[in-house]
Amino acid sequence: MSEHTAVAAVEHPAVLQHQFDDLEQQMDASTLGMWVFLLTEIMFFGGLFAAYTVYRAAYPEGFAAGSLRLDLMLGGLNTVVLIASSLTMALAVRAAQLGKRQDLVAFLSATLGLGLVFLVVKVFEYHHKYVERLIPGPNFFFDGPHAAQAHMMFCFYFAMTGMHALHMVVGVGLLTYFIAKARSGRYTAQYYWPVEVMGLYWHFVDIVWIFLFPLLYLIGHRGVH
């Protein structure tokens, strides 16, 4: 076992951490660590989704009325943007596995760009809501029979998309860090998996949006009216 360690350490002096026997163990540990972290994230968002479910079941009309005030175009655009970013992220992982440094930097940058587009669109949406006085709180104003219930719907709209956006900001930070490291040649075909582990996080944040979009934007029976 210890000879094995010595060999591995000589091969990859820079990246093998002392507590691991070899790079494979290190990769397994990092990957599992991220999956466990994502479980934590599922429970975190799960609490929010559970609360959302309780109130939507209690106030279906108000939630539908509130949903109609969301901008389907911008929400739809952001959904497309995030799905595209998942694709570029997957391509980045592929590039890392093949050891293609330039492709890796390009795909990570594309992912970063799409992530930023998402956040900019979100800022516009939030601003519209502010102008339309749909921010929950004393200034909230909703014209219609279910104003109080719609207020609750907007509480959840901001809590859920806000938490999601916060995770996007973290993802953008991670991408910036990884792009810098990738440019300096940190990742190789043997040491590609940090990109993959970070990619898991990115895909997770995308998937959360895939649930948020219909639950917030598409519950308003738009076709019926």
């Binding site: 609490g47 609360a51 929950p136 609750m152 809590a159």
Partner: peptide, 19 residues
């Protein structure tokens, strides 16, 4: 994480009086 989100909601409610 579940108590974390519960605390976040209490914090939001206290800060913005959202109910």
């Amino acid at each position: 994480p579940v108590v974390a989100i519960a605390i976040v909601l209490v914090g939001l409610e206290r800060a913005f009086r959202i109910g």
